[in-house]
Structure formats: C-alpha cells, structure tokens
Amino acid sequence: MNILVCIGIVPDTTSKLQIDSSTNKIDYNGLTMIIGPYEEYALSRAVEIKEQVGANVSVIYVGEDASSEQVLRKCLAIGADEAFWIKTAAVSSRQVANEIYNFLQTKKYDLILTGKESIDTNSGLMPNLLALKLNIPYFTPVMKLELIGNSSVQIKVEVEEGTAEIEVNLPLILGCQEPIAEWKIPSMRGIMSARTKPLTILDPLGVKSSNSISDQVISKQRLQKKIEMDSINDLVNVINQINK
C-alpha cells in the first residue's frame, strides 16, 4: 500500500497578517509556518494506517517557503517515510495539481490524501483538479477512512443531504478533515529518524508567473457595544431588526 499525502505550508493559525509595503503582498517574514491543519489530519491518518496494517507513506509539497525543509522534516518525524519537494513558487491550485500530476508519471500510489482545503486560499480545488487529470474519483471532505483489504476503502464523507458512509475502490483522492485522525506529536525517536529519511528536491515542470497584483489585510471594526442585563430589550431590538 503506497500513500501520498499532499501538504501545503501555511502561517500558524494565530498569525497576525501584515502587508509588506515594498511589494504590497502579505509579508511572510517572521511568521511561523506550519503544515496546513487539514493536511496534518491527512498525514496523521496515513501514519495510523501505516502503523495498523503497514504502508509506505510519502509526502509531497509544491512551493518555496523558507521553512519548507523544516516542515517536511516534521512530516517525516510524524511518521512519513519519504518527502518530495517540488521547488517553485506555487501560484494556483491548477499549477500545483499539474506539478503533482507530472510527479505521478513515474510514481504509483494507491491512495492520495490532501486536506479538504488549504487555510490560506480556502479553495479546496487541488484534489478535484488532480483527480480530473488522473481520471480517478475524488471525495471531499472525508471524516473517516478505513482500508478494506488492499483494493478499497470505507469512508465517511459530507454530501448535500448530510453525511454518507461509502465503499469505493482504489486508487482515489480524498480531501481530509477532522475527526479523521488524532493529530500526532512527533516522538523523540521520530525526530531523530527524520534526519536520515530521504527528502528529495525535484525540479518543477516550469516556472509560472502569477496574475496577482496585490494583497490587502481586512480588519473589520466591530461596534463593541456593551449591553446590560436590565436593558436586554436593546439586544432583542437589534436581533429583531436584523431578523425581520
């Protein structure tokens, strides 16, 4: 069983975003960068499967964040066996999907896991676009994943009507979200062994330029109006006004 987990590297969820005035883009210098939280769920599930039934787990990252190596080593410390890094600026979901598709021309995986979305762009398009190219099914967001033998999985996935438990054949792509796995804290042994696990840097298909012009940080000013219990009718009026 070969599992590939596609990860993104994003600012820590408590980061305060700021604009670099020389580029008019978000300033990533000084921000703590982490594995995208949904991708970390995906990776954790892959490692659980490896521990339960045995599997080879690879991670792949497309991008050129300054902390790439450190974050990929963390993936290895969590339990991935091998990491691949396609070093190029990631400018769109399609470009990332194209790069991973190209990578998959020489490598075979039974199961490809991604996060349900990356928390910077919140687009969730990558698994969808990659599945199209590979002509295999994809499901997202997936909250439960069990391997059934070597050729199929049982998953719980959100659908329009609610949630469905389904059985589908491999290969496929799953966009993961909690509670698919417990987040794993790397053990000391994991951290030690991560140093010697393979981390391969790959050349991109090509360098893409972005059509992005500028970023802007939105800070919404809230009224911050305090309401006392004995004037709760003020609150009732506010609610009625909005909800009429």
Binding site: L17, I26, I119, D120, N122, S212, I213, S214, D215, Q216, V217, I218
Partner: peptide, 8 residues
C-alpha cells in the same frame, strides 16, 4: 485566510 485578507 477565511476573509482576513484579499488578493487582487
């Protein structure tokens, strides 16, 4: 970033 920022 869930509406915390925008790109043009």
């Amino acid at each position: 970033f869930s509406g915390k920022a925008k790109t043009t």
